[in-house]
Write a protein that binds this DNA or RNA. Sequence first.
DNA 1: GATCTAACATACAGTCTGTATGTCACGGGA
DNA 2: TCCCGTGACATACAGACTGTATGTTAGATC
Lengths: 202, 202
Amino acid sequence: MGVTRRAEHVADTRDALVAAARELFAERGFAATGTEEIVSRARVTRGALYHHFRDKKDLFRAVMASVAGEAAEALVTHELRHAQEQPDEPWDQLRHGFQSFLDVCTTGDFQRIVLIDGPAVLGPGAWDALVEEYGHGLLAEWLRRAMSNGEIDELPVAPLAALLAALLSEASLYTARADDPDTARREAGQVVDRVLAGLRRG
Amino acid sequence: MGVTRRAEHVADTRDALVAAARELFAERGFAATGTEEIVSRARVTRGALYHHFRDKKDLFRAVMASVAGEAAEALVTHELRHAQEQPDEPWDQLRHGFQSFLDVCTTGDFQRIVLIDGPAVLGPGAWDALVEEYGHGLLAEWLRRAMSNGEIDELPVAPLAALLAALLSEASLYTARADDPDTARREAGQVVDRVLAGLRRG
DNA sequence: GATCTAACATACAGTCTGTATGTCACGGGA
DNA sequence: TCCCGTGACATACAGACTGTATGTTAGATC
């Protein structure tokens, strides 16, 4: 028998837990969210939570993977569509991708869960593993292409990818917390673009 | 009467609490450190803690201020000495200051407390206030000087300072978590320097 | 020297996490 | 079909931790 109905139910409760936790973690942060709130919103009991996840941090890891995966997917499709419409050179793709990231990751979920609570809850190790999986990989690939194309200067890829990712993270946070988000978005985008332009082979 | 002995004792217990908390927060993180551990290391009781600080977060705020203040002071004296020895142009000062930051803030205290736990514990608001006070002010001042000197392109100062600070933070963290810290430090420094150089008036 | 207050210590209540135990439905084999 | 084993939960409990309320003492003030 293929996928039994029981298995569907199991997956459904797990998804409900992740979805409920995602809402609450994004809204109030990890520390301020009690497990009772989560399970009540998911309409199960704490037993289900501790059956599916080892502890609260394990649930957080699943939530963050979900959020990061969604963002990465949105970014990739965004980029693919753009690349089809006008096949750019790698450098323009990179440039456009940076601006897309700023638009995709303005959602509060991403900021609070991935950028703020992520490092503190999971510790540098587990957090980097997730970020590496969803973000740095893609970014490093783009950078390598632009370098081998001779469009940007040769630099160690790993630290460059990490630092540029941090730049984008902060640009996203800066935009989110500004009094005037539109102006902030424009200015942050301008700065990011200028930094990137500065890396071009002079 | 000037400073009474009693006042000295009061200040001493407060300092002892901050010092003990700083060690433990840096070692295990904010969430994993119990107040009982803190007061026992400071050789007082929890009563003293809740007399001097409104709650655990308030103590954390004091600890972070202490750590950030120390780093800022070290950075400034570092820079002053360098500026006296060879009076550079603003751009060289900026460049040198960035590298100094990477060396000063490699201490684990700073990383865990200010960069990792800070945003999560205090929330974006309170954290930015502290960072603004200790870091961005100095950085923004340097940037303004370099701009008015025509050495780097005109850009909105606030987002530029925020993004460059994030770049330095990540460079510091990248160095700390690398398997080979020496190589990482050199490469991160190289990337930072290259990014900064890219901002120069072309 | 009496009193008043600040600086603590102690005791307590509430909350939260994680675990141990119990129950029930579902699936498979005789 | 009946029985039984296992997985998917629910429930109950123990431990820990934070914050508060109350008590006590040493020093400042008059």
